[in-house]
């Protein structure tokens, strides 16, 4: 287990470094010069060169890359804005704030969105999926599968505005989605996020219904399940103790992918509901050609994806004893 973790983390670090290289190159291909944006309308070549120098953009690209990488590990204090402790992503070109603290500012919203939605869609999705598999071929099964087919084909950019229009703008049942930190006011936190949660979980739950159903049905035809039945175990026991455990593998796989995309910033969701989370931050950083911020969000999102992959792979070993790590 330790060896597995060590190897995977090492591999992930390599990928992260490579990703930084790609993001760096991407940025230097960007059409707009961030210094030109900061310089304003009355920009002289001198002032521009000055800004280039303070941003460190006058150095060569490999040099800048090295400074950035070493800053991540050791921290830096060569910024005009003040010291920058490790992990140092530098200061945003646009807001002049530390990138790391901006990331940490926006993270609670993204976390709340992901956590709330995950709880709901796992309960609803797996529940309906199991029920559909249990009552396979009946009217319940057919209506669940048909419903989930349609719902999972919905997109956040359709269902979100639709829910907003009906529930907020036309009937005024809810207020516009808004984020209040959980520690400030739990009630406001809950009511502010209820529409985004509902929309996200509707779409995701439908996918899990389909997945849980098909995975369970596949498992119920396995030989070890048949053996258990032949031994005279009750249908319920076989269903929950034998088939359920085996059907978890594909579910965990997809859950890992979904969670990593939710935690890395659900860009379209946050954009639809106007919530200032990590996804919005990413869009803003591109709009303002803000390299430190863009690198911060990208690396954070990629780290989340890699972490989720490792956790998922470790989970396989717990679920299925035949899977051996390493």
């Amino acid at each position: 287990m330790l060896r597995f973790l060590f190897r995977r983390i090492l591999g992930s670090l390599v990928i992260l470094v490579l990703l930084t290289v790609v993001a760096f190159l991407l940025f230097f291909g960007m059409p707009r010069d961030p210094a030109l944006l900061m310089c304003g309308k009355t920009c002289t070549p001198d002032a521009l060169a000055n800004i280039h120098h303070t941003l460190g953009l006058d150095k060569s690209i490999p040099e800048q890359f090295w400074i950035f990488l070493s800053g991540l590990v050791t921290g830096r204090d060569d910024f005009a804005q003040g010291p920058c402790p490790a992990p140092c992503f530098g200061y945003s070109y646009h807001t002049n704030e530390q990138v790391w603290s901006t990331l940490m500012d926006r993270l609670p919203l993204t976390l709340s969105l992901a956590a709330g939605a995950t709880v709901v869609f796992l309960f609803v999705g797996l529940g309906t999926g199991l029920l559909a598999a249990w009552k396979r071929g009946t009217l319940v099964d057919k209506s669940f599968t048909a419903g989930s087919m349609v719902l999972s084909s919905m997109q956040i950019y359709f269902l979100g505005p639709l829910a907003l229009a009906i529930l907020v703008y036309q009937t005024h049942i809810f207020d516009e989605p808004d984020y209040t930190p959980l520690t400030d006011n739990p009630a406001a936190w809950f009511t502010g996020l209820i529409i985004p949660w509902a929309v996200l979980s509707t779409i995701f739950a439908a996918q899990y219904t389909r997945m849980a159903r098909s995975s369970m049905i596949e498992q119920l035809q396995e030989e070890h399940v048949r053996t258990a039945r032949a031994k005279g175990m009750s249908g319920r026991y076989v269903f929950f103790r034998y088939a359920w455990r085996g059907s978890l593998i594909p579910i965990i796989t997809i859950l890992g992918i979904d969670l990593s995309s939710l935690l890395g910033g659900a860009i379209i969701t946050e954009y639809t509901f106007g919530l200032p989370g990590l996804g919005r931050l990413a869009v803003e950083s591109v709009q303002f050609s803000d390299l430190p911020l863009l690198l911060g969000v990208m690396l954070f999102a990629a780290a989340v994806i890699l972490l989720c992959n490792i956790v998922v792979d470790a989970c396989y070993a717990f679920i299925d004893p035949r899977v051996r790590l390493s």
Partner: peptide, 12 residues
Amino acid sequence: LAFPAQLFFIAS
């Protein structure tokens, strides 16, 4: 596969 796809699309 480790790329945050949507983010990469927007940035690139």
